[in-house]
Design a protein around this nucleic acid. Sequence first.
DNA 1: GCGGATCCTGACGGAATCTTGAGGCGACCA
DNA 2: TGGTCGCCTCAAGATTCCGTCAGGATCCGC
Lengths: 234, 234
Amino acid sequence: MAIAAPLILIVDDEAPVRSVLAAALHAAGYRTIEAPTLRFGLSHALGHRPDLILLDLGLPDGPGLSLVTTLRPAIRTPIIVLSARGEDRAKVAALDAGADDYLTKPFSIEELLARIRVALRHADAPICGENGLAFAAGGVHVDPVRRAVSRDGEAIHLTPTEYKLLLALVRQAGRVATHRSLLTEVWGQSAAAHPHYLRVYMAQLRNKLEDDPSNPVLLLTEPGVGYRMIENAS
Amino acid sequence: MAIAAPLILIVDDEAPVRSVLAAALHAAGYRTIEAPTLRFGLSHALGHRPDLILLDLGLPDGPGLSLVTTLRPAIRTPIIVLSARGEDRAKVAALDAGADDYLTKPFSIEELLARIRVALRHADAPICGENGLAFAAGGVHVDPVRRAVSRDGEAIHLTPTEYKLLLALVRQAGRVATHRSLLTEVWGQSAAAHPHYLRVYMAQLRNKLEDDPSNPVLLLTEPGVGYRMIENAS
DNA sequence: GCGGATCCTGACGGAATCTTGAGGCGACCA
DNA sequence: TGGTCGCCTCAAGATTCCGTCAGGATCCGC
């Protein structure tokens, strides 16, 4: 059976641009869907589950980056940002927000296609923990799209930092998340020297999520290495 | 606790460029090693196992791309290509050869750092396809991706040192691992003088993994030479 | 300005881990 | 028989790592 061609979501407000991109992508053997605004982009991204997203910044209904920031915690779909603005600030902001690549217009179609191949190559290997949108196990449920966490059906309030840490753990559910990866993901590159943050916030997460915080079942310690969230059961 | 900062290999023939890059990377909290030629780049990449490689094309002793093509099948380390040439051809060729990103000089350090963060982020992500290292035999199962070890289906907790030693043995499963190779792999170069460490930790591994620790079946002693883990059955 | 929530930071006790030493056992050899 | 050597076992510090608590700083809405 033929494997379905990768589906690429094009988010751009200018119809001509969309059709040029779509034509080039079709010629290269991809399927495409298009969205003219942030709102449609978001709903299509969640609804159609594309394999890759091409995002033009500068959309009419809001900052294009917000698509990245809202989408990235929920799904791992590679996002390539296209922009007319080539300032470093914008690039760094987009990349740090979770974008996987950034092309400044004008760019050649060949380069775009090559970078799409790179992004798809990256996305191909993983998908180990399913990375389904949601996590559920041991009575705890995490919904990254709604940014909602519940335990035994009751909503749990988490502070921003707690939630970020939980997401980083959920994303690696079943595997060991090293101190370093957690620290850099939650507090940024420079935090690698402060493993103490982790202890404090792990304790808070356990207090909120575990039945018996001193005998954790969900959030396990791997001494000298990091922490491990139990396997996703959903 | 000091968590090792990511190690970045800089391959560039011009010493001033290398030192500028190294300075910027140090300032950002990374460790670096440098290589002026392809040959050294290759040997450092394989010897030091950096977390990321910055590769300048146009090296004196051959086409820079050959580093990508020879390295990529062997290791998954992200490679960012730096080049003065901005032609699409070169970009496409590099990216398709296995490079993960391509920056055209001149570029800003901020952008480089942001793209390094992207690449390291990718590298942190789980990889499932590459289970080649997984080991299973005699009821014992080792899963390096999850950093999990089980015996007869039950999870076994290993300390960092025990796990490191087990991995070193698994990597040589079926063959003899000499005392010296195990010692240097687990405790570093300077440990060759303390063969006693090995005995202690081999005993602990046997206690945790063998049915009858005093009559080992999995972890065999090769008197005078080293130890041997039985052949992988998976 | 005020109250509340959140985050950072230091101090401390206890747990897990690593290191080191002492002693036992069996193989081998003179 | 006695000695040496390599390997195994056990266990007691020493050290590192982790969980907990709480005070103070910061931010934000009102």
